[in-house]
Design a binder for these strands. Structure first.
Lengths: 180, 180
DNA sequence: TGACTGCCTTGTCAACCGACCAGTAATCTC
DNA sequence: GAGATTACTGGTCGGTTGACAAGGCAGTCA
């Protein structure tokens, strides 16, 4: 499953082969199609897996206060740094109007978007533009890691870079929110 | 060429087939490999094409003033809205440390990045985080158009949405720059 | 003990992939 | 107008793809 997430994120749905995923997981292609009836099913399971990890980053412990806006944003950026695969799933699926895109929206993105709208009481077009601005600004640098290293010299897996990006996101998107 | 750009953007390098590109351009696969020795060469030609279009959006006419920071940002967002394929090329190539990524950085992205660093006199880690924040925030909504429509109801090809996104980007990234 | 079940391996299938090649027709050069 | 160059077609090649089928092989229950 970890292998499937990695390969789908690295190569996209079309570019990922069930044989490569199987090899990465040290099994055979036959076994993959035994456990997951089709490549589509495997992709959905991989998406469930990686979005589950992301969601866990926002869970509140039993004796914790629900985090404020700044803390949520910090966790969001750090989760993107730790799991850039999420962004690849979103971009890979989001550009086609097909069944996978609709499934991803209905099963994972809708919930996230409505949480976001709840935090920032925006609506309509503003909600959409703000949501995608936050998502894009927070995620891109971590999702093109090799490019970023070659282009800028900065390594987005370096904690110093992650901290700098968190600070920038806080300055950009949480300037007038000092809760948490 | 327009067909190649579209297919590479829609399906990524691995997912795009020379046969599909040929069909989209109403020719044969044999002709594609005649004009472009390999799929890699075709990809590079497509990248040159689409980055050329993007670059033209920033050119200054013979009797124009060079645009100020706000105007450059506006043009950048509008160019991303008109040509979301650029972002797909970047994300598709940028996640691997391979020859295509290095070529794209050296032939197209380096120049853009250094122009950016010139405008915003940042350096080191700050330059990197700011660059990717601007790029991600400006582009994402236009690159996952079908998803955005289903998720938020807003259509990122709608001029009203584009204008709203331009305004948001100006508020976020050009708050203390009132030139132009 | 013998039938049954779930997990897994191996092999095979048609479809598709990028690359290549022989052959053809049109255009250009002298 | 003969010869050379260029543009293009159709077909074919080895290799890869997702899906499927047949069989083995432990474990379980009657």
């Amino acid at each position: 499953m970890v292998a499937a997430v990695a390969v789908f994120a690295e190569r996209g749905f079309e570019g990922a082969s069930t044989r490569l995923i199987a090899a990465r997981a040290d099994t055979t292609q036959g076994l993959v199609t035994y456990h997951f009836a089709s490549k589509d099913d495997l992709w959905r399971a991989a998406a469930d897996h990686v979005f589950g990890i992301l969601g866990a980053a926002f869970e509140t412990g039993p004796d914790e206060q629900p985090p404020g806006g700044r803390e949520v944003l910090r966790r969001f950026v750090e989760a993107n740094a730790a799991h850039p695969e999420v962004f690849h799933f979103i971009v890979d699926a989001g550009r086609h109007d097909n069944e996978r895109m609709r499934w991803l929206v209905d099963h994972h993105l809708r919930e996230r978007f409505e949480q976001f709208v709840g935090f920032n009481d925006a609506s309509g077009i503003d909600a959409a533009t703000t949501y995608y601005a936050v998502a894009g600004a927070s995620s891109l640098i971590f999702c093109v890691g090799p490019e970023c290293r070659r282009l800028t010299g900065a390594d987005p897996t370096d904690p110093a870079v992650i901290d700098a990006h968190v600070d920038l996101m806080l300055r950009l998107f949480a300037a007038n929110d000092d809760s948490s």
